[in-house]
Simulated assay, not measured.
Amino acid sequence: MNGRVSQQEGFAAMVLRLRGEGMANHDLLKAVEQTPRSHFAPPQYQAEAYSQRLIPLDCGSFMEGYDFAARLLHCLNIKPGQRILEVGTGSGFTAGVMGRIAERVLTIDRYQTLVSSAQKNLEKAGIRNVVVRQADGSAGVPGEGTFDRILITAAFNSLPRMFSDHLVSGGTLLVPIMMSETLCRIVRVNRTGSRFDREDLFDAPYLPIVPQLASFL
């Protein structure tokens, strides 16, 4: 089976599974289809790129399963023209998909190794409106203003107020929250004026956020 056939079959299988869950966001599915996972998965895991398993990356990070990544982005409900912040770059895949829809994406990671590889992956995929930066994800993004959507892929013990303050009115934040030592759940926060509405969504595989920049990686 060549790479192109694998990509088409992997995407089609994922679409069928998500439609079975009632997800049929045309713009999102088009963006996912246009962003080949094979450009982002490490060479030794190419055969797993379209699977539902976690794919290991450098620095102890990982790519979410294909379905899980699409489900996250479905819950974020990204629209054209929006400004997006992602905390936890990983391979750059989710930032790349968001970049196909939004006007601009800023994605940050504490590991320079991941920042560098994600930049290369995004260039390979031909995505130009994603800015990848090394930064401490536990501290917010001072000086960057506000965002329409924020996606965080490292868990906090409670809702991080600094990121809520980065949301515009009408904006949405997705953040993993540690419910216990072993249970992590995705929480969605919608802002309307000064009001924040919280909705607990589904369990997630994320680990607690680590503060400060990595010294060596």
Rank of each mutant, 00 (worst) to 15 (best):
E199N: 12
I84D: 01
I209N: 03
S164W: 12
D27S: 08
K30C: 07
K30H: 09
P43I: 08
Q212E: 15
S6C: 00
A24T: 06
S6W: 15
E9V: 10
E21C: 11
L73A: 03
L54V: 09
G81W: 04
R19S: 04
F163L: 12
A31G: 02
T172C: 09
A118C: 03
L167G: 05
E9Q: 15
A154D: 01
A31T: 03
G193T: 03
R4T: 13
N77R: 11
H26I: 14
L114K: 01
T192I: 12
G90F: 02
V187K: 07
N129W: 01
L167H: 07
D27V: 00
T172Q: 06
D197H: 13
M162Q: 10
Q52W: 15
V131F: 11
L217F: 12
Q212A: 11
G145K: 08
A135M: 15
P42Q: 09
G126A: 01
S6K: 14
D197F: 10
A135Y: 07
R71T: 10
I177A: 10
F62P: 02
T153H: 01
V131T: 15
G96D: 01
T89G: 06
S169P: 00
F216V: 14
V87E: 02
S180I: 09
S116L: 13
F163Y: 15
T107Y: 01
L167P: 01
S158M: 11
D136Q: 09
V187W: 00
L114G: 00
H74C: 00
K30L: 06
A12S: 14
D197M: 08
Y45C: 07
M178T: 09
R100D: 00
R71I: 13
R133I: 09
L159V: 15
S6M: 08
D203M: 10
G3W: 14
V105E: 02
R128D: 12
V175E: 09
S158F: 13
G193K: 01
G99H: 03
S116D: 12
E33A: 10
G145N: 10
R104W: 13
F40W: 03
L173T: 05
A154V: 02
V97L: 04
L28I: 12
N157Y: 00
G99P: 01
D203C: 02
V15C: 11
F216T: 14
R83M: 06
L18H: 09
